[in-house]
Design a protein around this nucleic acid. Structure first.
Lengths: 223, 223
DNA sequence: ATGACAAAAAAATCCAACATTTTTCGTTTC
DNA sequence: GAAACGAAAAATGTTGGATTTTTTTGTCAT
């Protein structure tokens, strides 16, 4: 076996394969529209015929992989249209979920948001100085955790699930911007602080605007 | 093989199995929280170990089936919380998509909406008189087609996909109301006509309200 | 070039079996 | 009788290899 467990939830081969593939798609090791042949993937990641197909089926549902009947799987395309679409849906979902979290969130929730924000700041600082793969991975995870914490208390399992999937679809673009040095860490820091403040003050208008701005800058169509 | 092709897209065993299972979950032949044992399902629907697992993985992604690591699959629960959650997300998604369709929709789109509305009226009339399984199936399909037509021109593949999944999650409840004679066909007809009119006049406020009402009555928590 | 046709590749499926985990159930103990 | 325990049974997750079908590729004649 090539890999080992990456997190608590990786208790089956399929979920381990899924983690590995997710990471490689996010980091661009597997390129958009690239054909994903079962045999090649097995050689690279291990797992059986069956497990690999199940994994691709899973990633396909997550929007990271495209499947065409009788023609197998390929990495989800990453056209300007795709970026636009992901941004559109993600903005609406997160705005909605945040508004709900404003209603339901208590002090404990605020604490978790603050903690996630703090961890994110550390990760941004680390990745700003040396953008190696490891710190990039940790930075990506910190972004995910902060986003997740924000909407955690929307108390809607489906919204939470959706947000996660859309976030994962966004990761490719966020990491690409990091690689190409297109991230303005200074303004990100200001914006994230402002967002945190808005959340703690339950300033819905400001929070929605900042959230939208955050997503839009991460997902601005480059081409 | 127990079944035959049910639609154009059913060109693989997995997609046929998925159709059959989707139908049986919607119609209540498979009950909420019921354990889905691979062996039993194979005996009932055919297909190999592999195909059945892949199918369940697929339905799991669609929100019709729950999967727990090392503990297999079960039919997605149908608690009042679930109904509430589905309604919440579906309302927001469809409202958003409809607003976008208002921007992008042209005459051809309006034509398809009118056609879908017409077909729906026929199906409602048919199912009102004799609610056998066949007409119920056709009615369900007409509802789906009408909803899909409304948002078709939002031009967002992800929104369209989401709407379909949420609609499929709703079908169980809609069909249950039909079975229990809780549907007010008269007011449905009025509302659907009003919705059509609002769409043709691009009356966004009215359309959003009617759409929300339609979904809420279909998904009102019973218990 | 172009189209027809054969060969190769890949996808989709199935079967049979094995390892691991969960569940069940009967026994023992308090 | 109820709780704790552990062995047996069941179910899940996984594998390898074989088979069928579909798509892709390469070749040849027109």
């Amino acid at each position: 076996m090539i890999f080992r467990r990456q997190s608590e939830e990786d208790d089956t081969i399929v979920s381990m394969l899924a983690s590995a593939l997710r990471r490689d798609i996010s980091f661009g090791a597997l390129l958009p529209d690239q054909k994903l042949k079962i045999a090649e993937l097995r050689a690279r990641y291990g797992g059986s015929n069956h497990s690999m197909r199940e994994t691709l089926r899973l990633l396909s549902a997550e929007g990271l992989v495209e499947s065409t009947s009788q023609r197998g799987f390929r990495v989800m395309s990453a056209s300007a249209e795709d970026v636009r679409d992901i941004a559109l849906v993600r903005i609406e979902i997160e705005k909605l979920a945040l508004a709900l979290a404003f209603k339901n969130g208590d002090v404990a929730w605020e604490g978790r948001v603050i903690a996630a924000h703090h961890a994110l700041q550390k990760a941004e600082e680390a990745v700003r100085q040396s953008a190696d793969d490891l710190s990039a991975l940790e930075w990506d995870e910190a972004c995910r955790a902060f986003s997740a914490a924000l909407i955690e208390r929307c108390d809607s399992p489906r919204l939470i699930d959706l947000q996660l999937k859309l976030f994962n679809q966004s990761s490719r673009f966020r990491l690409a911007q990091l690689r190409e040095g297109q991230l303005d860490f200074a303004s990100r820091k200001v914006r994230q602080q402002a967002l945190l403040d808005a959340v703690l003050e339950r300033d819905e208008v400001a929070a929605r605007a900042l959230l939208q701005e955050e997503i839009q800058t991460e997902l601005r169509a480059e081409t």
